[in-house]
Design a protein around this nucleic acid. Structure first.
Lengths: 192, 192, 192, 192
DNA sequence: TATGAATGAGTTTTCATTCAT
DNA sequence: TATGAATGAAAACTCATTCAT
């Protein structure tokens, strides 16, 4: 009984996921450069040769892993920021960030360790250039709305806190009390 | 007529500095793993072989570059925290952090991109294990003194802000207004 | 259609043999240290890289080549000495030594040139520690049985002759009359 | 007060000896190929550069060390064998061999581990080719004199014992009872 | 589609020898 | 004469990628 084209597609999709997943684990454990394709393929339960049937190269794996991260983030953030800027939407915006972070800690760790590398910078530029401005504008708007006298600086300070939260969590996801810190950030920057 | 011992010492010191400097530039530009010893030696204007006259291995270069960073930081922090904990000493502590950051931005960038790698984690454990506890204790003491009801959480929030400051600066040292952010942190956590 | 597991196994076994064989020739011709992996791989008709698919390191090649020698020898000696000690078993013991020597002259040459090196001493210790004592005991027992007044010294003299035979043969396998010397040794030490 | 030419010569000779001595120790400890010129020069208390003032190359050191061994041996053997061949002269010949062995165990060990290498074979050919025949002839003559029916084979068996003695002693100079074995050899081959 | 053997360019590292002083 | 810094050629080893089957 030959499989249908649709079944083939499904198999392909599953395998791709399995490989990406294996790559994520191995890369985040050993670091992208130290990890070998051999280990990834073994972890995925797939032969080395087959990997190249699904992905062009090692760097493509990395770029997909990190790129998808930002697809999620950007989409999430875009949704919350498309609404009129209110305390509520800002809170959702922050919570969205935490949620995305908690759902993919390994990806974020990987991203973090590679964020200064050319291979990764390239993606970020592609993905982020336009959206970043949008977000900034929205957040500044919020601070203005609250009567902030230096909303640009507030944006920077706010981003600093968000960054600190992200990095601290990535460094030690098991012990960092991210929810409590989130609340403190919300208290400090959003609800007065 | 052979050179004197002192002359040799000077040559060695100069070359060591030159090599470390070159390594720092190349590593921080291209990433430790992507950078080759060949490139480092070319950047330092010496032969590949000579590098091994001065340093045991590629990883030793990395460890010296990053280790020295923490020697500085630990010493700075120790000095400011040896004093009785006051607002003044806490301010100095924060300013010390900024100063160290600004004096060696490339090293810090390198450190951040390598901070999840075994090669680097090992050094930090060696350098940091005891001191870290001391610093935490002191800062908690400060927050207690100020009547804080949850000084442990405040420490974490404070560390989050400091981390955010560090990382934000490293990511974009030319545009990040670190001094202004420093003031905001001092205002928020120290002087009320 | 991919090869079956069995086919892969065969390929691996063949290649391993070919590489070990090439290594033996090159090492014993030029000496272990002077011989390069490049030359070995060329002699085996494979790429340098492939060697490391099959063997961990250059020194592993050496250790396998020499280790297998002693596996053979120890097994042979053990078999003949497990029997009750008689003139016949002692003769077989000596003949076994000659046979092993003649079957792998290049390995023995390699062994002798490396026998004082740490890389090789290590294997011998692992392989020989317990058996050596057993063998000595058995041979001493034989000399005692024959009424020898100083069987320990006789063991040493006997070993000296065996060693002399081994080394002389290795140095010039084509011209050394090993069988005749073997007979002389048997006459001298075993049958009167 | 400028040194005389003779004094200079003496200094040179002393230094040469010191370097050769250091080389011997280091080579015999670590093996010729594994040992580095750096270590030798340090052991000799002399700079690397200066070593090349006294010796052409690393291999020259080896060749001098091993060559001198055979100068001694050949001279010693020649002296004892220049006399008419008697039991006494044969005994002296054997004792001479033991004496030379005991006086330079490290050289012999080095020689032994290098004896199959091209660098060393070259010297031996130069030194040995003619003398070896002389010695063989003399010893055969002795066995003939004693009424031996196969003196050529006896020579080989005798050489085997001598070789065995040599090698056994080199392998474990501290525990091998070379004097006792020497007596046994003399008893067996010389004094019937 | 699927395998893992095979490649080869590239990497780190070593060290006898040379050279400026 | 004396030093050890400096070289560079060659070594061992790695690994992303290709390829025969």
């Amino acid at each position: 009984m030959p499989r249908t084209a649709k079944q083939f597609e499904e198999i392909r999709a599953d395998r791709k996921k399995a490989i990406l997943n294996a790559a994520l684990h191995v890369f985040s454990e050993e670091g992208y450069h130290s990890a070998s394709i051999s280990k990834v393929s073994k972890a995925a339960g797939v032969s080395k040769g087959l990997m190249y049937n699904y992905f062009e190269s090692k760097v493509e794996l990395l770029q997909i892993l990190i790129g998808s991260l930002f697809d999620d983030e950007i989409n999430g953030m875009r949704k919350t920021l498309e609404q009129p800027v209110t305390e509520q939407s800002m809170i959702e915006f922050i919570q969205m960030g935490t949620k995305i972070l908690k759902s993919k800690p390994k990806q974020w760790k990987l991203y973090f360790s590679m964020s200064t590398q050319p291979e990764v910078l390239k993606i970020l530029q592609d993905k982020f250039s336009t959206d970043h401005i949008l977000f900034s504008t929205k957040i500044i708007e919020f601070f203005k709305m609250k009567g902030d006298k230096n909303p640009e600086l507030s944006l920077t300070y706010f981003s600093t806190a968000i960054t600190g939260k992200k990095v601290s969590y990535i460094m030690d996801p098991d012990n960092y009390p991210i929810d409590k810190i989130e609340k403190l950030i919300i208290n400090q920057f959003i609800t007065t």
